[in-house]
Design a protein around this nucleic acid. Structure first.
Length: 264
DNA sequence: AAATTAGACAACCGCTTCTGG
DNA sequence: ACCAGAAGCGGTTGTCTAATT
């Protein structure tokens, strides 16, 4: 087909984003909303491809992102949803407010997957590994009692680096690992994000909304991530639109602040 | 103390899906 | 109905940091 690349490769910067770039992107979206990602880099004065900008925004700069490791409920929910949906990370992420598909995917690949294998559960089929030998049973999802997964030490995130971080990690840990133990959006643990949001958003009166203030209480769910009802509730809401928990939060905001404008 | 290894996560790539003409 | 462009998605890779040797 000879489809055009998403951006001309010449002069397009790759690799980690700098605080300056973040700032530019955030400033741009702040004043123009999300529209036409392809045009964003040019208009925002960034030497990045539009895709990269979108990814950076959705995975890192979005104000409604929860930072920190997945808590027990979220993890159980991810496993359960994975059993139902497979590797459809965006669908799974849509059920976890403040979480991104990338984040969930990474967490799955680096942590949950290993944990399931260790427990003798096939992370793909969610069946006991020993059963795999027998002729293919229909892939009935999620027969396993995943309550086992939240045994002490498991959801303490038992990776070699983080399992004890909730108790032993010194304050001022790195932005990444310092997230341990917090399910609250907390950019304090995240120097770049903290810088950006404090510098731009918090001082900018036009950005006048509660970044994480989506209130689902009227829908019967608490914002508290430790609320036991949360996973049940989400599972009951499987048929909600995919945008329900995603960026749609912006569309509910004052359109004068964030004029999403739909698709160009 | 330096080198090596492993884990975690950010970011990229390429394919698929969606949307408007 | 078809096509092209744009966005979205999932797999993979790269980079950074902490732990270990």
């Amino acid at each position: 087909m000879g489809r055009q690349p998403c951006c001309d490769k010449l002069g397009v910067k790759k690799g980690p984003w700098t605080a300056e770039e973040d700032k530019k992107l955030v400033n741009f979206i702040l004043s123009h909303g999300q529209c036409c990602w392809r045009a964003v880099p040019k208009l925002a004065g960034l030497r990045r491809c539009g895709k990269s900008c979108r990814l950076r925004w959705t995975n890192y700069l979005r104000p409604d992102l929860k930072r920190g490791l997945l808590n027990e409920d979220e993890e159980k929910l991810v496993i359960d949803l994975h059993a139902r949906l497979g590797n459809r990370w965006s669908k799974i992420a849509a059920r976890l407010p403040g979480r991104t598909d990338n984040e969930i995917k990474n967490h799955w690949n680096t942590y949950i997957k290993k944990k399931l294998i260790k427990m003798g559960i096939d992370p793909v089929t969610h069946q006991p590994l020993s059963k795999q030998e027998s002729p293919r049973e229909s892939r009935v999802p999620c027969p396993t009692n995943y309550d086992q997964l939240v045994l002490p030490g498991i959801c303490g995130h038992a990776s070699s680096r983080t399992d004890n971080s909730s108790t032993t990690t010194p304050a001022g840990n790195s932005s990444v690992d310092g997230r341990a133990g917090s399910s609250e959006p907390n950019n304090d643990d995240d120097p770049p994000a903290s810088f950006i949001w404090s510098d731009i958003f918090l001082d900018d009166s036009s950005w006048n909304f509660q970044a994480t203030g989506e209130d689902y209480s009227e829908l019967g769910v608490s914002n508290s991530s430790s609320d036991d009802s949360i996973s049940t509730w989400f599972l009951d809401c499987e048929d909600l639109g995919d945008e329900f928990f995603g960026l749609s939060c912006f569309s509910d905001m004052d359109s004068s602040i964030l004029d999403l404008g739909g698709k160009h």
